[in-house]
Design a protein around this nucleic acid. Structure first.
Lengths: 213, 213
DNA sequence: ACCTGAACACCGTTCAAGT
DNA sequence: ACCTGAACACCGTTCAAGT
């Protein structure tokens, strides 16, 4: 029985993705560099190029893993409306924590993996709701783009930046901005609530449409 | 009459912002570096630091100028619904062309400038519509976040990336993804139309609520 | 008062060399 | 087959020096 080479196969796609997710979670820093990733792995910064074509491919692999958790972590019950709502809120939760990795998905669709369960589910629920067949794609797109777009935008915000806007609006000349100055103090107090408000608007309107049909 | 120093005051905040917007418009490149900006201005790359604290402040100044154009470029007519719709579509148009500069606004609200007209207008229209006073802020937030978030997300997409997702979804195993494979060919054919669909859902629901009140 | 230019501390990525 | 390490071509930003 020959001695195992202790250096052989220390790295793998899985180990690299693990380390990457550990780093983004540990630091609220904006970005994880390959040099930091190499440090975390105890390996030369360029070693990961033996397993991934470029940095984007690492983000993509990480995102696929995260997306698979969306449907795993949520058990759906109730009518199509509640299920659709819970699914999109679960999607938001994942995007809130890892906006950067998940945004990488947009530009390079991953090959053949496991993160598509939530999309299948969403479309199935829209059909179940009775949305007209030719409206299903566009309705899905609207819900998806709202959820992802608004969430990635919200993920960038900080309490300071939100308070900064409130204060700026409050200080504006009241004669030229009567509505804005009056509303300023109530803005951006709960961005999650605002997201849910908008989602419910969309679901309300869909419900009304399928009832009328 | 003393000779003017030909070098004096070649640079100004305005000239720098002009050059910056010229560059982002000319190139579909991802980012404009300060070295390229210096080249465009015929000046050392670090000269702009005499007029702006950092790169973000340049983006912010550019964004403020763009926002002012939102209300300038659009003449509003009709009821609150049409006006609100036109205003948000005009906001989308500006964000589609300059997503990066406008995103800089989110984190550092500009001092005392002229880009807030559209916000004042939106809130005024929601009041005019008859939205309950305590719902106005959250309704505004939902509409704003949808418009900006979805648009910044859409601005990143390319015809190739959209086609890539269509094809990926189409190739998935039909037994595990019956709805997704069936819908795949109809997805992402017109993302502007999808945005308008979602916006109309929201406006429909608001209309229904204020009628019921 | 404003611009220059060297320098600093970073990036992602390539590629010949090691083992 | 996989990792190393020097190198390349970039970044944003600082700061002493020029005029």
């Amino acid at each position: 029985m020959p001695a195992q080479n202790p250096v052989a196969s220390r790295l793998s796609r899985e180990v690299i993705v693990d380390a990457y997710l550990r780093l983004v979670e540990a630091e609220d820093n904006d970005s994880v560099s390959l040099r930091r990733l190499g440090g975390e792995l105890g390996v030369d910064p360029t070693a990961v190029y033996r397993h991934f074509r470029d940095k984007d491919e690492i983000l993509t692999a990480a995102a696929d893993r995260l997306l698979a958790e969306v449907t795993d972590g949520v058990e759906l019950s109730g009518g199509w409306r509640d299920q659709l709502r819970d699914l999109l809120l679960a999607l938001r939760r994942v995007y809130l924590v890892h906006p950067r990795a998940l945004l990488a998905l947009q530009l390079s669709p991953p090959r053949l993996e496991n993160g598509f369960g939530n999309v299948e589910r969403c479309i199935a629920l829209l059909r179940e709701a009775g949305v007209a067949e030719d409206e299903v794609p566009i309705a899905y797109e609207a819900l998806e783009t709202y959820t992802i777009g608004a969430t990635v935008f919200d993920a960038r915000a900080t309490q300071e930046s939100l308070a900064g806007w409130r204060q700026l609006y409050r200080m504006l000349p009241a004669d030229r901005f009567p509505n804005l100055t009056a509303t300023a103090a109530s803005l951006y107090l709960d961005i999650d609530k605002a997201f849910r408000y908008g989602l419910d608007l969309m679901l309300d309107a869909i419900e009304t449409r399928v009832r009328g049909a």
